[in-house]
Nucleic acid binder design. Structure first.
Lengths: 160, 160
DNA sequence: TATGAAAGACATCATGT
DNA sequence: ACATGATGTCTTTCATA
């Protein structure tokens, strides 16, 4: 798993901005022959440095309101149950299209990123689908009001 | 800004999985003529439904450890300063390559997603670059231990 | 690994149903 | 919305260094 050199990184940066650039365009931009660019990209894909090519969906399809939710699960008397509780909650959340991201933090905390059309719908969703989950100790909701970095993330995660 | 029909959505789903599919491959997969697929994709791009084409970076380039950090900013005596404090913190964080995502929640809370090579480096980064920020009321760190949905997000956000 | 050249595949566009 | 064909461009491969 050798390192990336400057040419590799330059190619990756260009493709990240626009993966539809043709090999000839990249070649011209970087002042290298097409065959070299072709070879490098082939290697980057083989090595898994490029996982895959994808599209980013635009604002039209992105939820207008997003919120981060942090769930703390009640510790049961029988300790072994905790992991099952948490996994069950994560599985349940993962299946909902409004839920863009789900992760566990520590043993008893679940973090989810939610998105919906409007603030009202989002709040309703939280009331009906999140706060009704059994065995919760606490639910903290953080609406994302102003995203400064990584905003496009939602266009990447949203399902179509 | 008309609606998407089933064909549009099918195309988007295929491109999301692999944006290097040729028009002929998509046409065959969906049992439609190439000219139709070509036309639809053109329209999807024109409308901005497809924001742009991009690549997802593989595990080699992704930070191994990620954590969500929730910062609460101390409310100053002069209320107007709060927004400046918060904006300043967001700007500062945004410039760091370890910081993958930054958003504001409410008036006094900043949410950031951090990533680094190892747990130690990540913790050091938090101690040195986060907890040292002025005017913080609280800092909560949630290491993301097990991501159930949206894991690829990091490969999308990471810089190269 | 890098390059140049050549062959084949592809997107694109125009025209017509 | 679909079919077809003409055009120029791009990718891919291979031989060579």
């Amino acid at each position: 798993m050798m390192q990336l050199d400057d040419l590799d990184r330059a190619i990756l940066r260009l493709l990240k901005k626009d993966a539809r650039l043709t090999i000839s365009e990249i070649a011209e931009e970087l002042g290298r022959p097409e065959s070299t660019i072709h070879f490098r990209i082939k290697k980057l894909i083989e090595r898994g440095v490029i996982d895959h090519y994808t599209i980013l969906l635009g604002p039209e399809l992105r939820p207008k309101k997003t919120a981060l939710v942090i769930l703390q699960v009640e510790t049961p008397i029988i300790e072994d149950f905790l992991e099952r509780y948490v996994n069950h909650i994560m599985r349940t959340l993962s299946m909902l299209p409004n839920v863009l991201f789900v992760a566990k933090s520590g043993k008893d905390t679940v973090i989810a990123l939610l998105g919906d059309e409007t603030e009202e719908k989002l709040n309703a969703f939280i009331e009906e689908n999140i706060k009704t989950l059994p065995t919760l100790k606490s639910v903290n909701v953080y609406p994302l009001d102003d995203v400064k970095k990584g905003e496009e993330l939602v266009g990447f995660l949203v399902e179509v």
